[in-house]
C-alpha cells in the first residue's frame, strides 16, 4: 500500500486553476520528484498536501488515513513535514534552537512543568537537545550548533532548514527546491544526505529545478504543466517524453 495517495487534487485561485485533477502515489522509502516549468503548480501541490491550503476538490491519504481537511500541524504530527522554497529560519535563535523547534511535536511536557522546572521538563529538554544534535551531525552542522542561524552561509542555512524538518522524525519529508542557491559541493552533499535518509527508510518528495540532481537521485518523477499532470515515470522515461520536452521548450 502506498504511503501517500493523492487523487484528483484541484485548486483554483480567483478563477485561475493552479492545480487541476492531479493524482499520484508515493511508496514507502521512495525518492519522488515533482518537476515542471515555472507556475506549473508544484508548490501549490505541496501546500495542498501539507495542509497549508485547503483543496477545492480531491482527496489526500497518508498512511491510509484521509488527511485532506486537516490543519498543517495535525498533518505534521502524523509524520509529514515540509520545507519551504524561501528559507524561513527563526533568525532570533541559534542553529540548535531552530532545530529544537522541529522537535516540538514529539514533546509532551506543558507550560507548568517548564515554569516550575520539573524533572520531566529537564529530561525532555535533554532529549530534544540530543535529537537536535544528532540531526545536525547527520547534516554535518554539529560544530555550528551554537551560532546564531543568520551567521551561516546560505547553503548551510538550507541544511538547517532540512535539519529542523528532520528533527520532527517524519516518515515523509517534502522538500521544496532544496538545492536552490547551493554551490556544486553543497549540492553533492545534499544528494548524499537524501540518499542516507532513504536508506534509513524515509520517504522523500521533492520539487526541484536542478535537472541534473533530479535525474540522478529521483526514482520516480511526475511532470506538471499549467496545473495538470502531463507525465509520470522513471527519470529516463521522462527525459525521452515528447510532451515534457515540449512543455519545457515551449516555456523557453
Amino acid at each position: 500500500m502506498a504511503l501517500l495517495v493523492v487523487s484528483n487534487l484541484t485548486k483554483n485561485f480567483d478563477g485561475i486553476t493552479a492545480v487541476s485533477k492531479v493524482s499520484f502515489s508515493v511508496a514507502q522509502s521512495e525518492i519522488f520528484a515533482i518537476i515542471g516549468p515555472n507556475g506549473a503548480g508544484k508548490t501549490t501541490t505541496f501546500n495542498l498536501v501539507s495542509g497549508v491550503l485547503a483543496p477545492d476538490c480531491g482527496e489526500i491519504f497518508f498512511r491510509g488515513e484521509r488527511i485532506s481537511g486537516l490543519k498543517p500541524h495535525e498533518i505534521a504530527l502524523r509524520g509529514m513535514v515540509r520545507t519551504f522554497q524561501t528559507i524561513s529560519l527563526f533568525d532570533t535563535m541559534t542553529v540548535l534552537d531552530n532545530v529544537k523547534v522541529g522537535c516540538h511535536g514529539q514533546a509532551r511536557t506543558h507550560i507548568f512543568s517548564a515554569a516550575f522546572r520539573t524533572r520531566a521538563f529537564f529530561e525532555e529538554e535533554v532529549r530534544m537537545t540530543r535529537t537536535a544534535l544528532e540531526t545536525l551531525r547527520l547534516l554535518g552542522l554539529e560544530r555550528r550548533a551554537h551560532e546564531m542561524v543568520g551567521n551561516l552561509p546560505f547553503g548551510q542555512q538550507r541544511l538547517v532548514d532540512i535539519a529542523r524538518a528532520l528533527a520532527g522524525e517524519p516518515v515523509l519529508l517534502l522538500l521544496d527546491e532544496p538545492a536552490a542557491g547551493m554551490n556544486a559541493r553543497e549540492r553533492s552533499e545534499l544528494m548524499a544526505i537524501i540518499r542516507t535518509l532513504k536508506q534509513r527508510g524515509m520517504t522523500i518528495v521533492l520539487i526541484e529545478h536542478d535537472m541534473d540532481l533530479i535525474m540522478e537521485i529521483a526514482e520516480r518523477i511526475i511532470v506538471l504543466d499549467h496545473g495538470e499532470k502531463i507525465a509520470e515515470g522513471k527519470p529516463e522515461e521522462i527525459q525521452r517524453n515528447p510532451d515534457v520536452i515540449a512543455a519545457y521548450l515551449g516555456e523557453a
Binding site: 498543517p72 500541524h73 498533518i75 505534521a76 511535536g105
Partner: peptide
C-alpha cells in the same frame, strides 16, 4: 517569525 512555517513543523499556532 512565520505562522505557516511553525504550523508545518507541528506547532498548533
Amino acid at each position: 517569525k512565520s505562522e505557516v512555517c511553525a504550523a508545518v513543523l507541528g506547532i498548533n499556532v
